Computed example of a mutant assay.
Amino acid sequence: MAVVSRVLTIGGGFSGMAASIQMRKAGIDVDLVEIDRNWRPEGAGITVSGPTLRALEAIGVFAEFTKRGYTSDGVDLFTPSGHRIGEIPTPKVVGSDVPGGGGIMRPELGRILADATLLSGVNVRVGCTYTHIAQHESNVEVTFSDGTTGRYDLVVAADGVHSKTRALLFPEVRPPQYIGQGVWRAVLPRPFDIVRPRMWLGGAVKAGVNPVSPSHMYLFVTEARPEKLQVDRAVWPQMLADLLAPFSDPVLAAQRANLLAAEAAIDYRPLANLLVPAPWNRGRVILIGDTVAATTPHLASGAGIGIESGIVLAEELARAAALQEAFDRFHLRRWDRCRMVIENSAQLCRIEMENGDKTEHTRIMRESVMALVQPI
C-alpha cells in the first residue's frame, strides 16, 4: 500500500503525466490540473533516446509510440558537403529490447500520454491551476482558480521550466539563464534514404534530421548567438534557410525550399538550463521535471529525465513506509542522473559554440550515453 492515498499533480506535461499514470497504478487517487485549456504541448519534432523509449515502455505507451512515431538505431555523421564520416552507435539499454532511439512530433507524444493519463483514471481538470497552497502537518490544502478547494497527502509540481511553484517555494533559485546558443526546428518531407538520424558537423552551426513518421522528418539546427534572438517570426524561414546555405550536401540543399512552406512549422528556441540543488521538496510539495532539472537538447534527454522522475517517484511512494523515506530514495536515484545530463549537455553546448575539441565532445557524448542506458 502506498504511503499516500490522494495526490495533486500540477501541470499536464510529460513528467506530470508520467507521475500521474504510475501513481494510479500504485492505487493512488490523483487529481491533475493543467492551465492550458487545450492541453497541448507546443513544438515540432522531438528526438527520443533509447532510455526514454524504455521509460515509455514502463508506462505502457511504447507500442503506441511505434505506431505514431519512428524508431531506429544509430546516428549517421556527414561533412557539410555530404561526405559520410562515420556513425554514432546507440547501445541497447539495460533491461529492455527497445531500439536505440526514435523521433516523434512533440504534440503527438503529448496526445499519447494524455490518452494514457485519462485511461488510467486520473481526474484531469484543464483550464485550471492553483491560486494558494497551505501546508499542514498531515496534508496540503489547495485553492484552485475555479474557486474550489482540495486536501491532499502530497502535491507534485510539474509546472514547467517557468514554474510558479518553484518561485514560491525556492525563491533563492534564479530563473533559467540563456547559455548563448539557440536551436531551430522544422518539419519537412522525409527522403526515402533518411532512415535514421543524420547530422552534419562543421563549424559553430550544426544541422541534423531525424525521422518522426514514415512520411516526415524534423530538421534541427543549432547556432551560437551572444544575445537572445528577437526578430519577427515572418523572417524565420529565410533566416533558417540562410543558416543552411554553407551546407552543400544535396539532401539539405533540396530541403531549403521546403522551409518557406507553412507546413514546415518552424520553431526557434533560445537554450537555457536549470539545476535546482536537492532536495526538491518543501514539506509535502515535491517538484519534478523541468521545474528543477531543465536541460539543453544535446543528449536528447530533457523529456526523458522528466518522465523517468515521474516513474521513480511513483515507485518510491508505492514501497516506502513513510513519506520522507520515499523522498530520500527518490533523490538518491534521481539527483546524480539529472545532474549528469544537465552538466554534460552544457559542456557539449560550450564545445559546439567554441568550435572546440571534437575528441572531448565525443568522449562526453560516449560517457553520457553509456551512463543513461543503465537502469534508473
Rank of each mutant, 00 (worst) to 15 (best):
A346Q: 11
Q238T: 12
R40V: 08
G69D: 02
N258D: 00
P270F: 00
V122C: 15
H216Y: 12
R68L: 09
V205L: 11
N273D: 15
R24M: 04
R196N: 06
V231Q: 14
N273E: 14
A158V: 03
E108G: 11
G182N: 10
G127E: 12
L53S: 07
Y130Q: 09
E227C: 08
M23G: 04
G12R: 02
R166G: 03
A44Y: 06
V3N: 07
S5L: 02
T131Y: 14
D159P: 08
T222K: 08
Q230E: 08
L260W: 00
I266G: 07
R84W: 07
Q181E: 11
S20R: 01
H298I: 01
D146L: 03
I112E: 02
G103Q: 06
I28F: 07
Y178T: 04
G13M: 06
Y218H: 15
S345H: 04
V373I: 15
F78G: 09
S213C: 14
P297D: 01
A318E: 02
T47P: 00
A114N: 13
G74H: 11
R198Q: 15
H162F: 04
C349M: 12
G283T: 01
R68P: 04
T9E: 07
P175G: 09
P226S: 12
P246D: 06
V235S: 14
A204K: 15
